[in-house]
């Protein structure tokens, strides 16, 4: 076998900055994620994890810095040596490539579980309806929601809602999935199921960035752990190494705090 040349990362973030009213929240974030890689993003409350995910989708436009999805510039492009901000249409066109599962899920309550998954395919990807329905039924069944297609979100349990939201994102055939604390809104007995699901997605080769306080997930599912503090990624490495031999004292303190079983900060 010939050694494979280093592929371009699926997600490449460089020098990303974001301030809210003059208060810097992201200060020069760098992050590369290879195809098929699962990165757990951890860090104390308020360090900017959610803001980073929101900037990656351009829900909050980053003030500065570049995002490349599969080599394609997203939001801001370097043309020659001038920075060009992309128009709304250009940004919208790449958005389906990034599946985002919000902490609060934000399912659409006026649509059934099935329609939550079908509508974006039809509206955004212009899929014929039958095809979109078939895809949605496949996904929902695969996520254990078979038979619940016609339920409205209010009639789904927390764990079922979560899986419906994941199905909605997956239906767009994203190249990258972002999860913001996928287990924090769930009852403890449901956490295991979601982690298993994420593990399965990882096994299927999905590239993922998962903000989490589940140290077990970080240790056993993630390939890499990125630790954020004060708006920067201050440590980033193979999961085992980061867990067992944290180099940064802030990371060591953070891991101690989480392992001591105190409510995740």
């Amino acid at each position: 076998m010939t050694p494979t040349p280093p592929a371009t990362p699926l997600l490449s973030v460089s020098a990303l900055r974001k301030s809210f009213r003059g208060t810097p929240v992201l200060k020069d974030v760098y992050l590369d994620v290879a195809k098929g890689e699962v990165v757990a993003l951890i860090g104390p409350s308020g360090c900017g994890k959610s803001t980073l995910l929101r900037c990656l989708t351009w829900l909050d436009p980053p003030d500065d810095g570049f995002i490349l999805i599969d080599g394609q510039p997203f939001g801001r492009a370097l043309v020659g040596d001038t920075v060009r901000r992309q128009g709304r249409r250009e940004i919208d066109r790449l958005r389906p490539k990034i599946g985002m599962v919000f902490q609060q899920l934000h399912l659409w309550p006026h649509l059934s579980a099935l329609e939550n998954v079908v509508r974006p395919q039809v509206v955004v990807l212009k899929r014929p309806r039958e095809e979109a329905v078939a895809r949605a039924q496949d996904l929902l069944a695969g996520l254990g929601l078979g038979g619940l297609e016609d339920r409205f979100p209010y009639a789904l349990s927390g764990g079922q809602k979560q899986r419906a939201a994941i199905a909605r994102a997956l239906a767009m055939d994203p190249a990258l999935m972002l999860f913001d604390e996928p287990t924090s809104a769930l009852d403890p007995e449901l956490v295991g199921g979601v982690l298993q699901l994420l593990r399965r997605l990882a096994g299927e080769g999905m590239t993922m960035v998962v903000v989490t306080h589940e140290i077990g997930f970080a240790a056993h599912v993630a390939d890499r752990i990125a630790f954020m503090d004060g708006g920067r990624i201050v440590e980033d490495g193979p999961a085992r190494q980061v867990m067992e031999a944290p180099a940064d004292p802030r990371l060591a303190a953070f891991l101690d705090l989480i392992r001591s079983g105190r409510p995740a900060a």
């Binding site: 829900l59 066109r93 958005r95 389906p96 934000h106 659409w108 509206v123 909605r168």
Partner: peptide, 15 residues
């Protein structure tokens, strides 16, 4: 979040 989740899947503001 309702509007934002629609925007993240790629819907335009009007959609």
């Amino acid at each position: 979040g309702q509007f934002e989740s629609a925007r993240t899947v790629g819907m335009s503001p009007l959609q």
